[in-house]
Amino acid sequence: MSVDNQWPLWEVFIQSKTGLPYKHSGSVHAPDGEMALQNARDTYTRRMEGTSIWVVPTDAIVASSPDDSGSFFDPSDDKAYRHPTFYVMPEGAKHI
């Protein structure tokens, strides 16, 4: 494996419109938070994708392990009652 001599990695989350959730867009290398913001702006918002950016050190993200996927996610397979499909959506409620 090659030695990673790059700057630390940051994950980039972009909010496309006020009120909408931030979505993961990708990652950038940067020496610190301010530079990570700038790099994220230059790399991921060139075509008006966003109105706000979060950057998070990749190290700070705790991810579930693929080995856990059985115990984590399979139990919700057969629980249809957890889906709010029996309700009528109020008019004017967007982004749900």
Binding site: H29, N39, D42
Partner: peptide, 11 residues
Amino acid sequence: PILEEDIAITN
């Protein structure tokens, strides 16, 4: 010097 900076300068 790095990919991100390449894009920044070109922008």
